[in-house]
Design a protein around this nucleic acid. Structure first.
Length: 422
DNA sequence: CGCATTTGACCCGCGC
DNA sequence: GCGCGGGTCAAATGCG
């Protein structure tokens, strides 16, 4: 098991490294494309109104597709830093406006009291994606990146798992800051904030399912701004990747597949019923359902060296492809998808089913993330890693009384489940 | 005594 | 404008 763990960790790290390399590549290409567009923009100004609208729509798509890149680029100035958690970034205008919006009630007494509220959400990714990317120079990019970050803060990853405990352990330390009765559910919803760092913006909500009280629904939001212990890394990476994938696949082009004005849900083909996207505005949410698959081992192949789908992506990367169309990329990896009324309560609104498109566009960050997600081997391996890591680390991770309740429950839920994301 | 949790109050967005 | 519901704050309370 330990040996396997080491292997898995090494692979995970390699995956992240590849991801980082890919990010850099993409950002470089984006910059080139942006510069090119800037050069020809005067010609575009004589377009019809419709064309102009279309163009501006495209421009809003780009930063959101690569929101991580934008955030990372702003967060990290020292490109030589190998840090996974990255350095703290300066507060962005978006944050300031968000904060002022939140605080515009006139009460300024605690304006600076709670550092977390002042924190920029443009932290390194939950789970720590490298921030080693070129910096945006154009102020428009910065603006767009800020918007993207704000969206990232809003993106949520929901994990459904069977647990008797009040909270599943994910390796992080959480402090409860509120509890509310939510409409339509007799069980209260608890609100937690990460306390591993003073200003960590990550929050999570924990609530039992109304339909099945044994199911615990944990919803993560935000990105850690501090290094994570291995035990937390697994879950954080998972949720972060899921959020990234969700957002990269849900760009709100007005005529897009996952228009944010829709309530859309999507299942992953590799594991029907295990992962669901619910992109209902303004908080697109991806749900990872760990309650359906009875036995992880069923999904593990003996001697399986899990395949990392995008390991060769940089070579395949083609700037002229659909690389900048997130919708198409989501489509390219979501195949034979179906709606999943049994996973989440039926939602009012339109359900959209993503259909496969031509495969030539399968080499972007979006596709890579989706590919990881869609790989059952990776998924199964990650579950094993998480399970064993939690088991190993647990004795040292006792500072949070809430997480102490984990033990058997977590092992029983996560360990038996088929974890859907990377 | 210090820290975490509880819980009522408050803020804010949204729909009517 | 008003009410509702989700989310957060912060004083009170509990606990080790």
């Amino acid at each position: 098991m330990n040996k396997e763990n080491k292997q898995l960790r090494a692979m995970l790290s390699q995956v992240n490294n590849n991801y980082s390399a890919l990010q850099m590549h993409v950002v470089t290409l984006m910059q080139r494309q942006h510069n090119r567009r800037a050069e020809i923009s005067p010609a575009n100004e004589v377009n019809t109104e419709g064309k102009v609208g279309e163009r501006s729509r495209n421009e809003t798509i780009v930063p959101r597709q690569f929101m991580d890149l934008g955030r990372a680029s702003m967060a990290e100035k020292d490109e030589s830093s190998p840090s996974w958690s990255g350095s703290r970034s300066p507060q962005t205008n978006e944050d300031a406006s968000m904060e002022s919006r939140r605080r515009k009630t006139g009460s300024t007494s605690n304006e600076n009291k709670d550092g977390g509220r002042e924190e920029s959400p443009d932290q390194s990714l939950q789970g720590g994606l490298p921030n080693k990317v070129p910096k945006f120079n154009c102020s428009q990019d910065v603006e767009q990146a800020s918007e993207a970050m704000s969206m990232m803060r809003k993106a949520r990853v929901s994990v459904r798992a069977r647990s008797e405990a009040s909270m599943i352990s994910d390796g992080c330390q959480w402090r409860k800051y509120g509890q509310k009765m939510a409409k339509g559910n007799p069980c209260p919803r608890a609100y937690y904030r990460c306390t591993m760092a003073t200003a960590c913006p990550v929050r999570k909500q924990v609530q039992r399912s109304a339909e099945d009280r044994t199911v615990l629904i944990t919803t993560y939001e935000g990105h850690h701004n501090h290094p994570l212990p291995p035990a937390a890394m697994a879950m954080a990476s998972t949720t972060s990747a899921a959020a990234t994938m969700l957002l990269s696949g849900s760009m709100p082009s007005p005529d897009g597949i996952m228009n944010s004005s829709f309530h859309s849900r999507t299942m992953f083909p590799c594991s029907p019923g295990l992962a669901t996207i619910s992109a209902s505005a303004p908080f697109p949410t991806i749900t990872l359902d760990l309650t359906h698959s009875p036995n992880l081992l069923q999904h593990q192949r003996p001697n399986a060296q899990f395949h990392v789908p995008f390991q060769n992506l940089p070579q395949n990367f083609a700037p002229g492809s659909h690389a900048f169309n997130p919708v198409l990329h989501s489509q390219s990896k979501f195949s034979a998808l179906q709606s999943s009324p049994e996973i989440q309560p039926p939602q009012v609104g339109t359900e959209q089913v993503l259909k496969p498109s031509s495969s030539s566009s399968s080499d972007t960050v979006t596709a890579a993330t989706a590919a990881i997600t869609a790989d059952p081997n990776f998924t199964a391996a990650l579950v094993a890693a998480i399970t064993s890591i939690i088991g190993n680390v647990h004795p040292n991770n006792s500072s949070n009384s809430s997480t102490n309740t984990r033990s058997s429950n977590v092992d029983n839920t996560i360990g038996k489940s088929n974890f859907v994301d990377n």
